[in-house]
């Protein structure tokens, strides 16, 4: 019996008077990989940021591992230690080395033993082929390398859920593959539970157990991956797919 990691009920989100998300409902089981697709401005970033408490929401409920989330700063701060997030703009801390970027939160936030975390961090760096850059500063790395470090930084927290918001959107084409492969491996080897926002349709088709299709802040489809790409249920989704030309 699968374990429920996340459940979203009747989520509404406003920016001022304007409603960005309309009555969003979905759930997510342990080990599931969901891709969140939709045209630009449809609210993908807004939704994924709301799931991490970076955006406050007006009403509705979010359940994490069966427990209702009290949307207070303190509660979110605790939950974020179990939810990893990677952004389009990497956002490594420029004043810290690669290794210190990775060690910061596990040692200071989770108060884990530095030596133990360091061993783990080095193993993770090894896995993304960047062990030799441990003592470099972010400015010395390429975009693709920075993004791989950002993923490692999130993984070092032992998250139960990973959120990816267009993590390859600012990368040069030749860098994209390396990053996507890491995410793919997370799915295949670690069975990581993930929500992925992406414009890489081939990748989405390959990795998605399910697809959430968002338009104008409304969740139009929640469909198994294969089915979505072969027979989308809504005309809007079909249009979107054909516009992506992949």
């Amino acid at each position: 019996m699968a374990e429920e990691i996340l459940k979203v009920e009747h989520l509404n989100k406003f920016y001022g008077d304007w409603q960005a998300l309309h009555d969003i409902n979905f759930d997510l089981q342990k080990g599931e990989v969901v891709t969140l697709l939709g045209p630009s401005g449809s609210g993908k970033s807004t939704l994924i940021r709301t799931l991490n408490g970076l955006e406050p929401f007006k009403d509705g409920n979010i359940y994490f591992k069966g427990e209702k989330v009290e949307p207070t700063p303190k509660e979110w701060q605790k939950l974020r230690q179990q939810i990893g997030m990677v952004f389009q703009s990497y956002d490594l801390f420029p004043n810290l080395t690669v290794l210190d970027n990775i060690l910061l939160a596990p040692t200071k936030v989770q108060k884990r033993d530095r030596e133990e975390v360091k061993k783990e961090a080095m193993a993770l760096l090894e896995r993304v082929d960047l062990a030799d850059q441990a003592n470099s500063y972010p400015r010395q790395l390429s975009g693709g390398q920075k993004q791989r470090i950002a993923i490692v930084r999130a993984l070092a927290m032992h998250p139960e859920l990973m959120l990816f918001d267009e993590v390859t959107a600012s990368l040069d084409p030749e860098m994209v593959r390396g990053v996507l492969e890491i995410i793919k491996e997370l799915a295949d080897r670690d069975h990581m539970t993930m929500i992925i926002v992406t414009h890489e349709m081939n990748f989405a088709a390959q990795i998605a157990d399910r697809v959430l299709f968002l338009e104008d802040g409304k969740l139009l489809e929640d469909t198994p991956g294969k089915q979505f790409f072969e027979h989308p249920q809504t005309a809007r989704a079909a249009e979107f797919l054909s516009s992506m030309e992949f």
């Binding site: 991490n52 970076l54 939950l79 974020r80 939810i83 956002d91 801390f93 910061l104 936030v109």
Partner: peptide
Amino acid sequence: QNQLDAGEALGMNQFQLARYVVLPQGLS
């Protein structure tokens, strides 16, 4: 704001955010 988001996403509280993100970068 991106740096603050990144810190928050790593589970830092307000004090940790100030100590590890805002202070070192703000002073520079």
